[in-house]
Design a protein around this nucleic acid. Structure first.
Lengths: 243, 243
DNA sequence: TGTAAAACAGACAGGCCTGTTTGTTTAAAT
DNA sequence: ATTTAAACAAACAGGCCTGTCTGTTTTACA
């Protein structure tokens, strides 16, 4: 089980930014720097429970994710789990917070591991984001996102977390992609477009069942981002009709 | 309860196309043209059950959509429902087929009701599609789409229907939007892009919680479709990097 | 007119899920 | 060393969901 705040010795100047970004999302009561033995042990099993929950959501869906199944997957007794999360609502709430944290961690880790050249010339960030849609973390996130639409209790936990996520991502985006410096608004809008396209694309990935169609849209998206970056395309109002 | 094959007297030349398109999606055993009294009665209550199921999926989500709730919503005894759909799997399967049909009907109805001028000059089809994402039919569809990712039984019913839907929509698209005549491939790719953007946008609609961001992406999408239509943008490979 | 079949309604049993309760082990404190 | 509290485990009760079974009404047919 990897510690939450990855202490790997990355000497990049950006590393601090990433860690600071991540620190803003670390759920409470999960840090390994607890004072006593019990705190550390508690955090460890809590993480085990939440990781198991992500697995359950990703592979069985929200409907079939029961407390029994989570405990079973975490290889822990249900009684022990109910000691840490007394009710299912509390557990779901913790899962949501953890899921957003993991998603942020995953994205930051992905962007950190590409070279500056790849990032700027090939827009490798698109590839990172695209791949992230097929991880268990994102699958779990999607299940919770959909559940939040109809379950008020889930929504009450989900909505503020989602808002905070996009807010932080927006604030830190310009640090992660410094080549857009001075064009923060343009980056924000390009980011919105990219997120919408890839999210919708991944959602229909199975239904379309055609790698060619998907890759065509992706390359087209890369072109558009390139043109937004170059200033050729703009988000201004008029909207030219057809010839 | 509107009949399945809408017999309203539309004299448009396109009306036949729409009806033919819809006829290809009408689920079996639901048509009002049954020979005897029992067949008609059966179809009527079946439709009532499926409409109730759509309501349940849209408002309570897949997880909380039980056979009890559906029967209750349909104002029918559970025993009666189990007479028509002996098992929950059979019911879900019927719901899926009906949901795709309703979605196709909704889209066809929407496109039918806009003028040719709106369709061509303002790309009003985008507006139709966008609005369709906030109907109960699409909410139910989304629940089933997500459920199909983790439930093999749901997927077995969902996947072929989804493939058939996109296939028919692709074939008939050139009839619905005849202004793209001769540019069928371009229409198909623009259609893919539009579907992905709007689907992803509607999915994040609540999470973003910012009408401005959403409308900006939508107007940008309209611009892009316009430029694809005009031939300015292309789906070709190279993909210009930044300056 | 009488019979078979379909539409419909209600009751029952088994299983699963949630939350509570009680008991046991282990670390921390005095 | 003893006491307290946290971590963990297991059993129990209540409720809900699914599927089956039986019974009742209505239509179709001979």
């Amino acid at each position: 089980m990897a510690p939450l705040t990855s202490p790997r010795g990355v000497d990049d100047a950006q590393a601090d930014d990433f860690d600071r970004l991540l620190a803003r999302f670390e759920p409470e009561g999960l840090g390994p720097e607890g004072p006593g033995w019990q705190q550390r042990k508690s955090a460890q099993t809590r993480i085990g429970i939440l990781e198991a929950a992500i697995d359950c959501l990703a592979t069985h869906g929200y409907a079939r994710t029961t407390t029994q199944l989570i405990a079973e997957t975490a290889e822990i007794s249900r009684g022990a789990m109910l000691h840490h999360y007394p009710t299912k609502g509390a557990l779901i709430s913790a899962i949501i917070a953890y899921c957003f944290y993991k998603r942020m961690q995953m994205l930051a880790e992905g962007v950190r591991n590409i070279s500056e050249l790849q990032r700027i010339q090939e827009f490798a960030g698109l590839e990172i984001l695209w791949r992230s849609f097929f991880t268990r973390e994102h699958r779990a996130y999607l299940e919770l996102n959909i559940a939040a639409r109809t379950d008020t209790e889930v929504r009450d936990s989900f909505a503020p977390q989602a808002r905070r996520f996009t807010e932080v991502w927006r604030q830190e985006g310009i640090r992660i992609f410094p080549e857009w410096a001075g064009e923060q608004a343009r980056l924000a809008r390009a980011s919105d477009l990219v997120e919408a396209v890839l999210e919708g694309l991944s959602l229909n990935h199975d239904a379309w069942d055609s790698p060619a169609r998907i890759s065509r849209v992706r390359t087209f998206l890369r072109q558009m981002v390139g043109q937004i970056y170059a200033g050729v395309l703009d988000f201004s109002e008029p909207g030219g009709g057809p010839a």
